[in-house]
């Protein structure tokens, strides 16, 4: 099945939009590079609506105490409740535990339409 979810111009880079696909809530994220990524809109922790969180950056891991290297602006989805971080450019993997990731949906762009399919 496939479904047109939104138009590309509906979502500027660094923004999100909630939608529905196959009867499930999903979130479409537009990364800093302009690409689109779709995930479940339910946080795997306690089910918060991820689209109400923020696409932001995050300090990358470092070997030096006190060093903050804030990177990936617009590519890290932070949950609106407990703030867990998911990397939308890395299949929605959680930064604190990369064994956990968001369920990702496949999509393609054609004529300005964002289409989800499975």
């Amino acid at each position: 099945m496939q479904k047109v979810i939104a138009q590309t111009e509906d979502i500027p880079p660094g923004e999100m939009m909630e939608a529905e696909f196959d009867g499930r809530p999903i979130v479409i994220c537009r990364a800093a590079d302009g690409e689109f990524h779709a995930f479940t809109n339910l946080c795997p922790h306690q089910g918060a609506p991820l689209s109400k969180g923020k696409l932001c950056g995050a300090p990358e891991p470092t070997d030096y105490v006190g060093e903050y290297n804030y990177k990936n602006e617009g590519n890290i989805l932070r949950c609106p409740w407990h703030g867990r971080e998911f990397d939308i450019k890395n299949h929605g993997r959680m930064l604190a535990n990369d064994k956990q990731k968001l369920r990702e949906y496949k999509l393609f762009i054609e004529d300005g339409n964002i289409t989800l399919y499975k």
Binding site: A48, P49, K52, G53, K54, R78, C79, P80, W81, H82, G83
Partner: peptide, 11 residues
């Protein structure tokens, strides 16, 4: 409180 919206749930 360093959550997405400070001390509150962002939604």
């Amino acid at each position: 409180q360093p959550a997405v919206a400070g001390v509150d749930r962002a939604d």
